[in-house]
Structure formats: structure tokens, C-alpha cells
């Protein structure tokens, strides 16, 4: 009897917890939306358009191929730039951890690069290169490369020395050493690096798309600015936010799968 009662009690508790969790997840967004909607009652639409108009535009972008292809183009540029920066960063990171010379030459150089604003890379890219896509990838890679490299270096240097020694004691081939030890040891930090750089890249990409591209979220935003279309500007911005959230979620799912070996308490 008391068992059933306590079961029912804990079920009620968990439902209550879920509701509370959902409430606090939604609360800040509801607050912003409400404030915006109130503002739209008092200001003209070119300053604060009604959210209904904004969502109509969002829907329009998602369902019209000529517009949605711009979202895809930007997404591909973000992912392409990140992939390029990651591959290059991994190579440089391995060089820096294995060679004192590489460390002395590359670490200050990359630190210096880190101080160059994205807009400067845009200007350099326009002066140096012709192809629009190449310019964009160049900007994306140069702006995310230092962070990626330093994160890879941190991950490699942070590997457990005792575990390295243990694996070495079995005299593994280079490939075995990499797949059995290095890769699983650095994966958590690599995924974190991707998450961090994804946010940076999504902010840089819209600037990079001002180099003369005829599509993409950055290009579309410029159009909205010229038309003084606030609803459109918001709708295009939201596309980018959606993409980042979607990709963060995919990375988190992968993380949960890849690190299922960790105890629950460590994950939370």
C-alpha cells in the first residue's frame, strides 16, 4: 500500500520537475518575445515589427528554395571553414606538441593571428584573392585556426602520462597507439572545441559573406538593411541561431554516445 503511494508520489515529483525544467527553459524567451510584442504596439513596423510578421518571414525562408538555399550555403561555409581549421589545427597542434622548434615558431604566430579582427581578414581576402567562395573559406579558417590549434595542443598535453606509458609498454604500432590512446583521450576536448568555435564561426560567417557573395545569410541581411526591413533582418538572423542550436544539439548527442563510459555523476 505504502509502496504504491510512494511510487505515485515520486511519479508526481518527476512530472513536476519536468514541468519546472520546461518552464525555466522557456521563460527567458517568452519574456523577450513579450517585451518585443509590446514594443511593436507602440513603434512603427520598420523598428519593431510584430512577431507574427517575423514568423511569417521565417516560414517563408524555410519553405522557399531560393531563400532556403542561402541558409544551406551559409551552413556549408561554417562547417567547411571549421573542418578546414580543425584539420590544419590538428596538424599544427601535433607539430607543436612534438617539436620544440615548431612550438617556438608557431605558438607566438598564432597568438598574433588571434589578435587580428575578422574584418581585417575580410579586407585581406578581398585584396589577395578573386574567388568568392575561396575568400570566405580563407576568412573562416584564419579566424578559427588559432583557437582550434591551441585546443588541440591543450588536449594532447593533457593526456594522462601513466596511461601513455602503459599503452607504450605493449609496443603498439603508431596507428594502434593513435586509435587506442590518443584519439579517445583527446575526443572530449576536441568536441568542446568544436562547440566553442561553432559559435565564433557563425558570427564571422555573416561578415565574411560581405566579400561579394550573391547568397547566404550575410548577403540576405545586407539586402534587408538596404530595404529597412526589420522583420526580414530578424528572420534571417533567427535562421543562423537555429542552425547553431541544431548543430550544438547534434554534437551533444554524439558526445553522449561517445562518452557513455563515464559515470552519470561525472556527466552531470
Amino acid at each position: 500500500m505504502s509502496d504504491i503511494a510512494s511510487d505515485r508520489q515520486s511519479y508526481a515529483d518527476s512530472v513536476f520537475d519536468t514541468v519546472r525544467w520546461a518552464f525555466w527553459l522557456a521563460a527567458p524567451f517568452v519574456l523577450i518575445a513579450a517585451a518585443w510584442q509590446v514594443a511593436s504596439l507602440f513603434f512603427p513596423p520598420f523598428l519593431f515589427p510584430s512577431l507574427i510578421d517575423v514568423f511569417a518571414r521565417v516560414w517563408d525562408i524555410l519553405t522557399t528554395w531560393s531563400q532556403f538555399s542561402s541558409v544551406l550555403a551559409t551552413a556549408m561555409r561554417i562547417l567547411g571553414g571549421l573542418a578546414g581549421a580543425f584539420l590544419l589545427g590538428a596538424v599544427l597542434g601535433v607539430a607543436i606538441t612534438n617539436s620544440r622548434m615548431a612550438d617556438r615558431l608557431l605558438t607566438p604566430t598564432l597568438t598574433f593571428f588571434q589578435g587580428i579582427p575578422a574584418l581585417s581578414w575580410v579586407v585581406f581576402a578581398i585584396i589577395w584573392f578573386h574567388g568568392v567562395e575561396f575568400r570566405i573559406i580563407f576568412i573562416m579558417v584564419m579566424t578559427t585556426l588559432p583557437a582550434f590549434t591551441f585546443q588541440v595542443v591543450g588536449a594532447l598535453r593533457g593526456m594522462d602520462k601513466d596511461l601513455l606509458e602503459m599503452v607504450m609498454s605493449f609496443r603498439p604500432s603508431r596507428w594502434k597507439f593513435f586509435t587506442a590512446m590518443v584519439l579517445p583521450a583527446v575526443l572530449p576536448e576536441v568536441i568542446t572545441a568544436w562547440k566553442v568555435n561553432l559559435g565564433n564561426a557563425s558570427r564571422v560567417v555573416v561578415v565574411a559573406e560581405l566579400v561579394g557573395s550573391s547568397g547566404g545569410v550575410g548577403y540576405q541581411l545586407l539586402q534587408q538593411q538596404q530595404l529597412f526591413d526589420m522583420a526580414g533582418a530578424l528572420a534571417w538572423t533567427l535562421q543562423l541561431v537555429f542552425f547553431v542550436l541544431l548543430f550544438q544539439w547534434i554534437l551533444s548527442q554524439f558526445e553522449q554516445f561517445a562518452f557513455r563510459y563515464r559515470s552519470k555523476s561525472e556527466r552531470s
Binding site: 601513466d162 596511461l163 606509458e165 602503459m166 609498454s169 605493449f170 594502434k176 590512446m181 562518452f259 563510459y261
Partner: peptide, 27 residues
């Protein structure tokens, strides 16, 4: 030709017990 038991167990945290034992055999 030689195998080592260290002071601490030095198990790979991302491998189950059986996969940890298999490590040496994989080489």
C-alpha cells in the same frame, strides 16, 4: 615478450574490462 603490472591499475577509462584486457592482444 614482456607484460607489466603497474602500481595503479592504469585502465583505459573508455574501455570496458574485457576491452582493456584485449589491449595488449591487439598489438
Amino acid at each position: 615478450k614482456m607484460a607489466i603490472v603497474f602500481q595503479s591499475d592504469r585502465l583505459l577509462p573508455w574501455r570496458s574490462a574485457v576491452k582493456n584486457v584485449e589491449l595488449g592482444l591487439e598489438t
